[in-house]
Amino acid sequence: MRITLNGEAREVTEGQSVAALLADLGIQAERVAVELNLKIVDRRTFTGTSLRDGDRVEVIGFIGGGRSDDDER
């Protein structure tokens, strides 16, 4: 099935959990926040939350930044 991950289309296995997706991406779960269809996923439920076809997933973390001018817009 196909999801949109951080704005890009991605094929994932049917019913894959958020935790499994992060593991696939090589991302340490404790350092990120995950938004699923504009709703924040409680990190305690990463394992129990299954993805569905068409889901929009955002994986968010912290980067260097101090001020709005650091933004690469």
Binding site: Q28, V59, R67
Partner: peptide
């Protein structure tokens, strides 16, 4: 220290983390 909140780099598995 202040940090910005942005999409995580998902294409480069080796990308380092500020933290």
């Amino acid at each position: 220290v202040t940090v910005a909140v942005r999409r995580v780099n998902i294409t480069d598995r080796k990308s380092e983390n500020l933290l």
